[in-house]
Structures are given as structure tokens and as C-alpha cells.
Design a binder for these strands. Structure first.
Lengths: 125, 125
DNA sequence: AGGATACTTGACGCTTACGTCAAGGTAAGG
DNA sequence: CCTTACCTTGACGTAAGCGTCAAGTATCCT
């Protein structure tokens, strides 16, 4: 129950990243694990954020871009002053995502066609 | 009609990349412009490949991965010995693309939800 | 002929995203 | 107490993907 927190090794194993990567993300303020003495403990919030980070990376976003997106996901009530600006950049990102989604569909279509062609060629040998 | 070929400047302008980038891609064997004297002339094949390169980049593929994918797209009859291997890596890439397509759909859903929430918050101020 | 312009090839610089030591702290087991 | 194991913070190294000179060449204009 109260193994809510993961140490750096468990966190790395679970999400297939190295400890170095986790420290790097903390240095870049993408994650903010709490401390038990000097050791890091990663919370559920950190885990949720890490999933989003890794997803962002798969879509070719830079870490700095991802950091800004992350802000949108955990505004708990506090910094609503920034909400307006964050909302606008979020809108922008959404458009980007939609555009890529369409483009990705095309890429899939194209590659499928190429593979079909290749398959046909292979059978004629 | 027979301005089939673009020089490095025209090519860069048309696809919004710098001359440096084009030379870099040539060095990495992603493009292979012909030469008129010492000057590069980019063919239609180069243009098609550049489009694919840029698309690949938007999806977070490394240049080296892109290079391998490109091979699949212009096998005109010659290197069919490699076709088998290329076909397999192509299959792999297709799976990756499909997975990302699905994931991207989820990302869009999530972000849309967050933005809806943010919008609601904004109106209550 | 003499710029001005646009191309070329190095070669070094820079940012991103980590990898890889080095040197040391700390908690657990024998 | 000593070892083992895992953590920590620097600090330097590196590959990718270009940017940015530097120095030379070729073409066009006047």
C-alpha cells in the first residue's frame, strides 16, 4: 500500500530509463522527487510525468517543449495566473499533434503500399 | 519544364532547410544531388527523399533510421538482394508507426480534456 | 578588370540528451 | 568494524544535428 514511492533504481527499471536519465530530468525540472535523507523517492506524480515525458519523446518533442506541456497537466489550483498563457501554448501543441496524427496516417499508408510492392517482388523471385 | 533541377539555394528555400543542412544530409548519404561542375543540383528524387526525411524527423526518427527507410522507397530493380532484409526492417517500422498513431490519438484525447478543463477554469475567473 | 554574388570544402563550435567515470556518503549484513 | 551494495554529486565525454566562420573558386554585371 504505502510503497507509493519508488527509489531511483525501481523507477528506472519500471520505465526502462537509466538512473542518469532520471537525475537529468530532475536537473531539467521535469521531475521533482522528494528526498529521504539524500536519496530520491519518486512519487506517483513523478511517474505520471515520466510517462508523459517518454510519450512526448516518441513524438519528437524536445525536453524543453515537454516541460511546458507538463505544466498544463498538473496545475492544481495555484498558478492560475499563468493558466492563460499555458492554455494558449497547449492549444498550439494540440494542433501540432492533430497535424502529425494525420500525417502519420499518410506515412502508414505509403509505407504499407511500399511493403506490398516489396512483397510482390519477393514472391516473383 | 526542364528546371527539373534545383540548386542548393532553391532547394533550401522550397523546403525550409539551410544549405548547411542539405550538405549535411548529402554527407550522411540521405541525398545524392548530381553535379554541374562543382555545384550541386537536386533532382526530383532528392526532393521526394527530402520530404520523407523531414516527415521522419517530425516523428522523432533519427537520420540513420530514416536513411534505412529511404532505401525501401527507391529500389528500382537493382539491389533486390537486400530486398528481403529491407522488407523486414520496413515491417518493423510500420508497426512502430501504427503504435505511435494509436498513442498519438490518446495524447490528443488527453490534451483535449486538459484544455477543456483549463477553459472552464478560465471562465470561472 | 574588378567587384558582387553564390557556390564549394574544411574545420571548429554549440546544444541536446544523456553515458561514464571518480570520489564519497550511508544503511545492511556478517 | 569491515565489506558490499546502492545511493549521492560533480565533472568530463560523446553522438547527433546542424551553425558559423575561413578560404578559395566560378559566374555575372558594369
Amino acid at each position: 500500500m504505502t510503497d507509493e514511492y519508488l527509489n531511483i533504481r525501481q523507477m528506472g527499471d519500471r520505465y526502462e530509463v537509466t538512473a542518469r536519465t532520471l537525475r537529468f530530468y530532475e536537473a531539467k525540472e521535469l521531475l521533482s522527487p522528494i528526498r529521504e535523507g539524500q536519496k530520491r523517492l519518486f512519487t506517483r506524480r513523478d511517474q505520471a510525468r515520466l510517462k508523459l515525458i517518454l510519450r512526448g519523446k516518441r513524438f519528437g518533442f524536445a525536453l524543453e517543449e515537454i516541460r511546458q506541456l507538463l505544466d498544463l497537466y498538473d496545475m492544481g489550483d495555484q498558478q492560475k495566473t499563468q493558466l492563460g498563457a499555458t492554455y494558449e501554448t497547449g492549444k498550439g501543441h494540440l494542433e501540432t499533434l492533430k497535424a502529425r496524427h494525420g500525417e502519420l496516417g499518410e506515412a502508414i499508408k505509403d509505407l504499407t503500399a511500399q511493403l506490398d510492392w516489396a512483397e510482390k517482388e519477393l514472391t516473383t523471385l
